[in-house]
Amino acid sequence: MKSFKTILIVVVIGIVAWNSVYFRRLDEVKQSLDAKDFDAAQYASTFWKSTLPGALGKAIDLTELTTLISANEAKAFDDHSHALGIGNLRYFLIKGKGAVESVKDDIVIIVLANSEQRIALATEFIFGNAIRDASGLINVNEFTNTMHFNNVSAEINKIVRETVLPEFKNNVKAGDLVVFTGAIELNREHPDLKDFEVIPIQISIIK
């Protein structure tokens, strides 16, 4: 009788334990999170072709922005930057023109026209939300899940890598004159005006 009780207890514990625990591979969890009915590539494509071009007309000249920030930092940030929420990281749509000083593996150094200012045009590290957020035209509250929202940035950056940069990287050389439109990130509390890194949206070699 005692052994029957013991077996019964073991069986009950076994059934409870079996139904209490399940194992899934991390990859399966990631895939299930990714697969939820949102086409980030399509969203990014529409943004790139239809939404962003309208905002590029408001891009501020980088030399002018530097002057404005030096004169009145708060006003320059309020008037020309966007961010989706709270915090010091702000994004600007900018434009500029200048001469290529040097071409490196991951950046092109440009000396801005009518200025001694050097900026780095990113040609490899095309990551982050600068383009998505600088326009101020995408609302995080449209998205049920922030992962979908983040995937939009990844797809926008992919467009830059695949359509904006290849021709430029193949042809650019020191001494070229270039015009560009792009996005930058600046920390409102500690703006670094000496090391601008521009994520390009449009870029042309004009001579």
Binding site: G87, N88, T146
Partner: peptide
């Protein structure tokens, strides 16, 4: 209210740790 309010995250390294 905004349904979602993101708060920026800042990179901290030895270069800017004093901030």
């Amino acid at each position: 209210f905004p349904k979602k309010m993101p708060v920026a995250v800042e990179l901290v390294t030895t270069k800017n740790i004093d901030n």
